[in-house]
Simulated assay, not measured.
Amino acid sequence: MRRLLGGALVLLVAAGTARAGDPYARARARMIRAVEADVAATRARIGRDRLAPAVMEALARVPRHEFVPPEWKDRAYENRPLPIGYGQTISQPYIVALMTDLAGVGPGDRVLEVGTGSGYQAAVLAALGCRVFTVEIIPALAEAARRRLRRLGYDRVRVRLGDGYYGWPEHAPFDAILVTAAADHVPPPLVRQLRPGGRMVIPVGGAFRVQTLTVVEKAADGRVSSREVLPVRFVPLTGGGRL
């Protein structure tokens, strides 16, 4: 029953923010409907008719307008990536929701994110109740995201300045790893930091080309498998581990 009511629950969240005087409530509701339409259009590729209601509820709660530059606030809830400076982007809401759903995370899970950007994906994960460890290689973005997440009350997110290719071994193993930049291979350090039974969601492919969103799974016995999900386009993963 909860799965069938997922869309209605999201609309109730939007309606609640509207009653509270949120000027972005209508735009946020349109964004949710656009994400649901993209899910329906790609269901044959992604292997599901809808995303988990908890994921959609988290997407509906996170104020995306807080994670974009001021000049883009009026377009913050469009279902598209937007520039955030330094050659980086905030991901399309559909892709954020899909990657979160594919990771299969929930309350209490430890999640590593590679590529903090503005902090939007980390906020969605935190809204699900995850403990988030996120790594950003660009100093200005890392510091801005740290301040933004703290100001907005996302206390379950820790931000680190560093090369995400090598993960965050001090806090491993992780129940899930989300990589929000494209790599031409799956980084071995991240595979090692994935808990048995965990999943990594990562775009794999060449820089500035169409890549493939890939789910990497580590079985209980440590064996690793992967499956391709969807063509995507991400900015490239940078740092010392880049081939």
Rank of each mutant, 00 (worst) to 15 (best):
R2I: 15
G7E: 07
L9G: 08
L9A: 08
G16S: 14
T17R: 15
A20P: 06
A27V: 00
R28Y: 01
A34R: 14
A44Y: 03
D49N: 12
L51W: 04
E66M: 15
V68H: 03
K73R: 15
D74Q: 13
Y77W: 09
P83S: 08
T89Y: 05
I90S: 11
A97V: 10
L98C: 04
V111Y: 05
E113S: 05
V114L: 05
G115C: 05
S118N: 07
Q121S: 13
Q121I: 01
V124H: 05
C130T: 15
P139V: 04
P139L: 07
A140D: 12
A140C: 01
A145C: 06
R146C: 03
R148C: 06
Y154D: 01
R158P: 01
D163F: 06
Y165T: 10
W168S: 00
E170W: 04
H171I: 00
A172G: 11
F174T: 00
D175R: 09
I177G: 07
I177M: 02
H185F: 12
P187H: 10
R192D: 12
Q193W: 01
P196G: 09
M200D: 10
M200W: 09
V210T: 14
D221C: 03
S225M: 02
E228R: 15
V235Y: 07
P236A: 02
G239W: 02
